[in-house]
Design a protein around this nucleic acid. Structure first.
Lengths: 194, 194
DNA sequence: GTCTATAAGATGATAGAC
DNA sequence: GTCTATCATCTTATAGAC
C-alpha cells in the first residue's frame, strides 16, 4: 500500500514561494503564509522549524525544478537559438503568471541578509544556469549559428544577468513588454553574422 | 552670514543608503541606522518622520545624483562606446566600493512592498536611465559605431537590465569579475560589424 | 535636535493540550 | 499535525522633558 502523503508541506511551499517571489525573503512572515494557507503559525513551525529551514527548502526545490526544466529544453529543442528562446520563456512565464520574480533573483538581491545554507543554494542556482547556458552556447558556436567573437561563458553570464535584470525592471515599471525587449535584443545580438 | 547647516540629515542618508544597498528596504531598521550613526531612533524620526519619508528621500537623492553623473558623462566623453563604458563604470564602482547593489535595482526587486512614492522614484530612475541610454545609442548608430539592426531603445533596455542583473549575480556569487564579464560582453556585442 | 520613556503591533519561535 | 497560549525581541512611531 502507498504511503500516506500529507499534502500540507507542498502547499506551504507553494504559498511561501509565491510570497517570496513577490515580496522577498524579508518581506513576508510566517503569519502571511498561515493566513493564506488557513493554518496557524505554530503549525508551520512543525513543518519548517525555522524560517531558515523554509528558505532552504524553497531555494533547493526551485533549483531542482529549474534544472529539470533545463534538461527538458536540452532534450526537446535541437538548435541553440530555440533552446535559448525556451530558456527565456522560463523567466517570462514566471513574470507573466503572477508578476513574480525569479526566486533566486530575488534572493540574490537580498543575499546579505540570508542564512548561509540559503545563500549556498542561490549561489548554486546561478552556477547551474551559467554552466547550462555555456554548454548550449558552445554548441551554437560550433555549428555556426551563434557568434564566436565573445567567449561562450561570457555570453552565458550576459544572458543570465540580462534576464534577471529584465524581470526586475519590467515588474518595477509595470511593463512586461520591457522583458520581451531585453530577451529579444540579447538573443538577437548573439546570432552569427550573416 | 551663511546658514547653519546641520550635517546630520546627510549623514543619516549616507548610512541608510549603505544599509539599503546592502540589505534592502525590508532588511534594515531605524535601529540599525541609529546604532551606526550614534543617535537614538527617536531622533531619526525627527528628521524622517516615517520610513516611507526616508525611503523617498533616499531614492530621490540617488536618482538626482545619478542623473548628474549621466550629464557629466554626456559632457565629457565624446563617442558612444566610451560613454557606455563610463556608464557601466558607475555600476561597477558601486559594486566594488562596498559590495553594494544599485539602490534602485534593490528597490526594484522589493517593489511590491514599497510605499507608493518610493515606487514612483524607482520607476522614474529606470525611465531616466533608459532615456539617456537610448539617446547615447542613437548617436552611436548615427555615426556608425554601434550596430543598427536592433532598435536603440531595446539596446538601452538590454544594457540597463544586464548591468542591474550582473550586480546581483556578481554579489551573490562573490565574484565581481562576473560583472565585468557581463559589461564587456554587452558593450562588445553592440559594436557595429566591421 | 536629541534624549528617555513608552506604546501597539509584528515576528520568529516554543510548550503543551488535543 | 494542529491547536491555544505565551515568549522575547524587534519595529515603527509618538509624547514630552531637556
Amino acid at each position: 500500500m502507498g504511503k500516506k502523503i500529507g499534502i500540507t508541506p507542498d502547499i506551504i511551499l507553494d504559498v511561501a514561494q509565491g510570497l517570496l517571489q513577490t515580496r522577498g525573503y524579508n518581506g513576508f512572515s510566517y503569519r502571511d503564509i498561515a493566513d493564506a494557507v488557513g493554518i496557524r503559525t505554530a503549525s508551520l513551525h512543525y513543518h519548517f522549524p525555522s524560517k531558515a529551514d523554509l528558505g532552504v527548502a524553497l531555494a533547493a526545490r526551485y533549483r531542482v525544478r529549474f534544472n529539470e526544466a533545463l534538461e527538458d529544453i536540452t532534450a526537446q529543442a535541437d538548435d541553440a537559438r530555440r533552446r535559448l528562446e525556451r530558456y527565456a520563456d522560463l523567466f517570462r512565464k514566471t513574470l507573466g503568471a503572477d508578476n513574480r520574480l525569479c526566486l533566486c533573483g530575488m534572493l540574490g538581491a537580498e543575499i546579505a541578509t540570508l542564512p548561509d545554507p540559503v545563500m549556498a543554494e542561490v549561489n548554486g542556482f546561478f552556477r547551474d544556469n551559467e554552466a547550462w547556458l555555456t554548454d548550449i552556447i558552445v554548441a551554437g558556436q560550433n555549428d555556426g549559428t551563434l557568434r564566436s567573437d565573445t567567449r561562450a561563458v561570457d555570453q552565458a553570464r550576459l544572458v543570465l544577468a540580462a534576464l534577471e535584470g529584465a524581470m526586475i525592471v519590467a515588474r518595477a515599471t509595470g511593463d512586461a513588454g520591457r522583458f520581451d525587449a531585453v530577451a529579444g535584443a540579447v538573443l538577437g545580438q548573439m546570432e552569427a553574422r550573416i
